[in-house]
Nucleic acid binder design. Structure first.
Lengths: 200, 200
DNA sequence: TGTACATCAGTGAACGCGCGTTCACTGATGTAC
DNA sequence: TGTACATCAGTGAACGCGCGTTCACTGATGTAC
């Protein structure tokens, strides 16, 4: 009986581990090519398993994608949190610069986020999970604005700042005839213009 | 000879007219369902023609989509221009409210715009056409900021404002558990928070 | 006026592809007696 | 210790779909003589 439970738990751990290996593979693929061209077969190949096996661990493709995205989102949120704590005095311009840079460097997650935002066909459960992540990110921004002694409704400031940064990252992404470096510099420049106005 | 030219020109006009009918049909379909689920066959059905015929007027699907989008973009730009001219004194909050409302009501064009912004695989010619439209829109915003006697680099302000509005429209689109009206109100609220900060 | 030919808008059927997902099966491991 | 059975991770092949695009063809209209 006791032994039984132990074995059972081991099997569960094994299953969990395999599940994580699949998400790991997904993360690697997402870093490689635009998210909307990633297929279940790609991820299976990267993980070294049959693509049919993925369906023993995830009900469908969308769930796996959301799962992988949430991993990246957690990293982004952790990064932002540390950024805000970093120094005694935070400058919103500095945070903006680092935040934009980070999102550019982790582009596939940013793309996935906007994709999920635009996609109307997500299941309610998945939407809820995505929103939990979004709220966690907004919590960090709240902390930033509180540290900056912002007046008024702090949460609404976080909403506004977050939305504006998203806009910057989407709008200038395909700036024609500009190199990656130039695009990045422009995004940071525009991001700072907005950020300054949140300083009041 | 003379007659020849006339006939030729009539045939050209006819061709142009057919082309426009196809784009009209595309516009209607785009208003009906999310743009990424629109197929060449849908548009052909709406236009009452064989889907093969579309390829006698457009080299490929993407070109047709861009063409249809540019029509909508022109309308948006015209709307924005009139909005700015409307009264002796413009208020950026009012412009923001009307602009956001308009984009919500013409959602499919907004969706297409973000799609094109995120899509890395556009041909150079199409990108150029899209950017011409974007520049025309920024020109209108320039006029707004000039009328508001903004200081500093007006064009950069237009960039910042435009990007921020895009962000608002994307970020809160799927606000969970909120009705369409509530979402709209929230977008306008956040939009105004940002807009106020551009008033300085 | 009649005839042979050219042009070209328009079509239905088919091609070919890649995809998400499911199926029937294998084979290793554990379990009961 | 041996044997029959159950479980379940894992698989390759196949299903079925919808799509963008192309093809071979039709038929109406215009043109040349």
């Amino acid at each position: 009986m006791e032994k039984n439970r132990k074995l059972n738990s081991l099997r569960m751990q094994e299953k969990e581990a395999r599940r994580n290996l699949i998400i790991d593979a997904a993360e690697r693929i997402f870093a490689e090519k635009p998210f909307d061209r990633v297929s279940v077969r790609d991820i299976a190949r990267e993980a070294g398993i049959s693509h049919a096996l993925i369906y023993r661990h995830f009900p469908d493709q969308q769930s796996l994608f959301v799962e992988a995205f949430l991993r990246g989102a957690e990293k982004i949120i952790r990064f932002l949190g540390e950024l805000i704590d970093e120094k005694k005095t935070v400058s919103i311009e500095k945070v903006t610069e680092r935040f934009i840079s980070y999102l550019i460097e982790n582009d596939s997650y940013f793309r996935m986020m906007t994709h999920f935002m635009l996609d109307g066909s997500l299941g309610a459960g998945l939407i809820e999970r995505l929103n939990t992540a979004e709220r966690a990110l907004l919590d960090q921004l709240d902390r930033l604005f509180i540290r900056l002694k912002a007046k008024g409704d702090v949460r609404m400031l976080s909403h506004a700042y977050f939305a504006a940064m998203n806009g910057v990252l989407i709008t200038f992404r395909n700036y024609p005839g500009r190199s990656g470096g130039e695009v990045k510099r422009h995004m940071i420049r525009i991001g700072k213009i907005i950020a300054q106005r949140f300083r009041v």
